[in-house]
Design a protein around this nucleic acid. Structure first.
Lengths: 293, 293
DNA sequence: CTGTTAGCGCATTCAG
DNA sequence: CTGAATGCGCTAACAG
């Protein structure tokens, strides 16, 4: 009883005493069906517990009602970076509203990268959502060429051709630095993240803007690029100390540091906000979507 | 140029000067093909950049090479609980090896729950991986009835019929309590998590075991069930204080408490390990898989 | 309003 | 070893 094949549109048609087309019409909400027929079909569907085979449907409609969310595992550290988890939740929620499936693709290496291309070419998804795309990434170009709807979370550079969703990184960085300057800080470091992405460049620009605004010389020694927070902090500290011969060090072993405060702040109510290369600026409540063309 | 339809098996066959069957054989690695023919086909495939349409293939093979990972959003708080992120990474990695797609389903409410059933019935996935399944959940039963391969992450009760992967919750809890007793603690509370799941019950059992072992009376007042850590701590503290009229309170506002230490430990080298209802015990390096039957 | 006729792209008999 | 024929389950013209 349990190993039986699921009913098809044909089964339903027979049970309802109509043609398969009529069943299809009912299922797809066409109004070219008499109330009587519709009722019969609906009853049969319920009785047989019929659910349309979406694979078969996909073959003819050429749509799968699924989109891929591509996350480069290398930099995500899904689980340690709140950003990606939040992203997944958001995407999942939005997709649910349109009854679209979410294919999650955590891309670790080149092999998985290639597989992604294949997945797309194999008509498995209707669209792709790309995160953390670097400037030299060829994937977006390929997707565009294949004519597959693509959206980037964050753009690569100012002249992005693909559709993208972005937050006001420059503005956020400016606001943050402005805030710190306002509270009397004089040397404000910035960790930009990779500078081949718009996020990094924009935040650096924002950092500079705030300095210029305030008539303060931006100490470029305090600029550090990178993704690994731990390594970055070490690097920045060393460089800075070497150059300035300052003896107030960062806390020596930043083992348990997490999102929250700079180690040296020590919870002393210094007013620090969460600040990190990929989580610093606040995403505006209604992010602007730019469509190309 | 870019809006062209992708090549089909027919295109390739024509280009290679063979029948479609031969192309299919080459693609699927059959050895019933002459070296010559294979070479021709391979060349054509490369030239045309052919990728088999997996939807069409799925229609005939009745397989999609995709599995669903179902996570109840209500309790996951993906992003605040490391467990789910780690799970996703692990699953994704394992799946990649077998070139299987991962459909992530964050289930928020009943509507999405129903949609899940439909997704499954629509032949969209070859199997389902279920997390955080409560005892009264009807979904596993339905899946079993539909004959769809299902695996639970964690079982519901001792007599679980479906395949599952589990960690040694009882053993972990015992070890933890044993450790604390050994360090001279005398009143050890436990937060079990929901008791309609095996995780909760097993850890509670382990907690009792360690007490029994040490000849210490287990103070059942210190047992608290629940999922929300914050609420749980408040509840437990109040109950405990009321009953004992103890005046050493928990730290009043556990706002920024995260994985790591109990608030009162204050980083004082008390030897606390990470402990929480859903993250406490360590998953053994080689988790045992029980197959039903 | 309805059913019949065609495929969608592929894997699979079954004769060559 | 090979190709022609068949059908997976469904939607989309096309005539009734």
């Amino acid at each position: 009883m349990s190993g039986n094949r699921r009913p098809t549109i044909k089964t339903v048609a027979a049970r309802a005493g109509v043609g398969r087309t009529t069943v299809s019409r009912v299922v797809n909400g066409s109004d070219l069906v008499s109330d009587d027929a519709r009722e019969q079909v609906l009853a049969a569907i319920k009785e047989l517990n019929y659910v349309p085979n979406s694979v078969a449907r996909g073959l003819v409609t050429n749509r799968t009602n699924a989109v891929a969310l591509v996350i480069p595992e290398s930099e995500s550290r899904l689980g340690s970076e709140p950003f990606f988890a939040a992203l997944i939740r958001g995407v999942s929620g939005a997709l649910a509203e349109s009854r679209t499936q979410l294919q999650l693709m955590l891309v670790r290496d080149q092999a998985e990268r290639d597989q992604l291309t294949e997945t797309v070419a194999a008509h498995r998804v209707d669209g792709v959502l790309l995160v953390s795309v670097h400037a030299d990434d060829r994937l977006p170009g390929m997707l565009e060429e294949m004519g597959l709807p693509t959206v980037l979370a964050g753009r690569r550079d100012a002249g992005e051709r693909l559709s993208y969703v972005n937050s006001d990184n420059a503005g956020g960085a400016t606001a943050a630095v402005r805030h710190l300057l306002h509270r009397g800080r004089t040397r404000i470091a910035t960790i930009t993240g990779p500078l081949d992405m718009d996020v990094g460049r924009s935040r650096l620009a924002g950092w500079r803007t705030a300095h210029r605004e305030a008539g303060v010389a931006a100490d470029e020694l305090l600029v550090e690029e990178g993704t690994s927070r731990r390594r970055v902090r070490a690097g920045r500290c060393v460089r800075y100390l070497n150059a300035r011969r300052i003896s107030t060090p960062c806390s020596p072993r930043p083992t348990s540091w997490r999102w929250g405060r700079w180690p040296n702040c020590g919870g002393g109510g210094c007013g620090c906000r969460r600040m990190s290369p990929s989580w610093g600026t606040r995403i505006p409540s209604s992010p602007g979507i730019r469509r190309r063309r």
